[in-house]
């Protein structure tokens, strides 16, 4: 099944009349199967709103989202969503939380047991599988939430600031882990971030979003080789991309 995602004139307005908040759009965008697209923009520009509309959890006021040729009319179950605030429940351990995703979908936890182990190992959390969320640091919770969101091997991944709470060093490591994962399995990814550098390091395309109402100002194709290690990041092409985005934000007075 194809995981191409299309946005046709998608727009979201919250509320009605004088209190209405024009949060996002209208936006036209096509994300091809296997692409890694970053939504880069300042706080409040509608990135999370676009995520929710993509996953069918929020209805656009105008326009339509199409995934794999089918219009989105309700919650999409073949996506993995990592929400901005983590969705770990306090009454389950890390492993239990990951299994919650499986149980909710009616999948067998026994069959997925190995997969859960692999995922925990991938984010360096094996030792904490029997801990409860309150026994973890913010960054560890985020890594557990990542496993929870992706355990059912979705073809499309929606990540809303997955690395937001991590310290700079862990962030760097998880970034390259995420890149490796994406290079191996090639899912379609929409990745929300505030970090310009992070966007260009990970993505095939970066959608630069302007402040309210959020609109895609420019889509920058990042034609650099993967994996984007230190070498690539210090190249002049990479710096040129970063500067291009910075200039857009400066012209809007965001930075």
């Amino acid at each position: 099944m194809s995981h191409q995602i299309e946005f046709h004139g998608v727009k979201k307005v919250f509320g009605e009349g004088a209190d209405a908040v024009h949060a996002f759009g209208p936006v036209d965008l096509t994300i091809h199967q296997g692409e890694f697209v970053s939504l880069l923009g300042p706080s409040g520009c509608g990135k999370s709103t676009l995520m929710l509309m993509t996953s069918g959890l929020l209805e656009p006021t105008e326009g339509q989202v199409v995934i794999g040729g089918k219009p989105v009319n309700g919650p999409q179950t073949d996506v993995g969503i990592m929400f901005q605030d983590n969705t770990l429940v306090p009454w389950r351990t890390v492993r239990g939380n990951i299994e919650l995703q499986l149980e909710m979908r009616g999948l067998s936890t026994a069959e997925y047991s190995e997969r859960v182990d692999q995922m925990l190992a991938a984010v360096h959390m094996e030792e904490f599988s029997d801990r409860h969320p309150y026994e973890l640091s913010g960054g560890m919770q985020q890594r557990a939430a990542f496993c929870q969101a992706m355990v059912h091997t979705p073809g499309t991944m929606l990540l809303d600031e997955p690395l937001g709470k991590l310290d700079a060093m862990t962030r760097e490591r998880i970034r390259s882990d995420l890149q490796t994962l994406w290079m191996q399995q090639r899912p379609t990814v929409i990745f929300v971030t505030h970090s310009i550098e992070e966007a260009f390091q990970l993505s095939t395309k970066v959608a630069v979003i302007t402040p309210r109402p959020g609109c895609i100002e420019r889509i920058i194709d990042v034609d650099l080789p993967f994996p984007r290690d230190f070498e690539v990041k210090s190249s002049p092409e990479f710096s040129a991309h970063v500067r291009e985005a910075q200039e857009i934000f400066r012209s809007y007075g965001v930075i």
């Binding site: 959890l57 919650p75 179950t77 969705t87 429940v89 909710m104």
Partner: peptide
């Protein structure tokens, strides 16, 4: 129930009963 957990349970397509037993009730 928190907004995030509500969205999470909807995104899994788990249905009302499963959502109740596994998320709403303990919460």
């Amino acid at each position: 129930l928190s907004e995030e957990l509500t969205l999470f349970s909807r995104s899994t397509g788990g249905g009302a009963w499963r959502t109740f037993l596994k998320i709403r009730l303990p919460a």
